[in-house]
Design a protein around this nucleic acid. Structure first.
Lengths: 121, 121
DNA sequence: GTATAAGTTGACATTGATGTCAGGTTCAAG
DNA sequence: CTTGAACCTGACATCAATGTCAACTTATAC
């Protein structure tokens, strides 16, 4: 699949897909003419990458993490080193705190929205 | 309370507190000499502001939202207009999706961390 | 009053993913 | 073979919160 289709199917811009490749997060075959050719599995991977970005991980860390994730089609190709695992554990805790904060914010918004809809039913 | 103490107690830098004031998110009395003097209640407010920033709201939107939130000491001083409420509802949905994504990422990290700790117990 | 800590404003820098544009090449269909 | 769509690289711009530094003023304790 080519970059346009991948962009369409993932909702990620072509610009970002090229950036992911530059950062070593995504690999693509090339046609004889140099156009990127992605495997079907790239769709899942891009979604994961996006989620990890949304979770506040930087591309360098994602690059180290990706080989340790199990793919849609099989187990991980690497096991995280103890150091990486500790690093990821810290990220995990940060994400957990983030979820708590987001939940708080969501509840605050709900309250404001409900107050408005009660006045203006 | 002065800015240094507020920064210490909230974990937010003095720089950011001044920025919040500049953006209309935070008000402070001034001493005769011009130093900021915050009420006790500012601590809670700063925490809320941080959470809303973490939820991806921009300062302008937070500024419109804040008067509609109930404070630690009482009800809201304003009720959101229908337009603001609709706007916030969209943010709410975005935050909800974000929580889902973060939960996914957390689970992925857990899996990688567990795989590493199983190999290296 | 003097020293030192804390505060003030203003300006400039940073960060990192993404947008955008230009100039050129490749692909696919007629 | 031609044409228009899709793709390539490279460069520059953006956004918004925060860091940082400078030059100065105020507060506090001795």
């Amino acid at each position: 699949m080519r970059i346009g289709e991948l962009a369409r199917r993932t909702g990620v811009s072509e610009r970002s897909l090229r950036y992911y490749e530059q950062q070593g997060l995504l690999v693509a075959d090339r046609t004889s003419g140099g156009h990127r050719d992605y495997p079907e599995q790239a769709v899942d991977r891009v979604v994961r990458i996006q989620e990890l970005f949304a979770a506040g991980l930087h591309s360098r860390k994602i690059a180290r993490l990706l080989p340790c994730m199990r793919d849609a089609d099989g187990g991980p190709s690497e096991i995280a080193t103890p150091q990486l695992a500790a690093d990821l554990a810290a990220e995990r805790d940060r994400i957990e705190r983030m979820i708590t904060e987001l939940t708080n914010s969501r509840d605050v918004l709900d309250e404001v929205i409900n107050a408005a809809s009660r006045r203006d039913p």
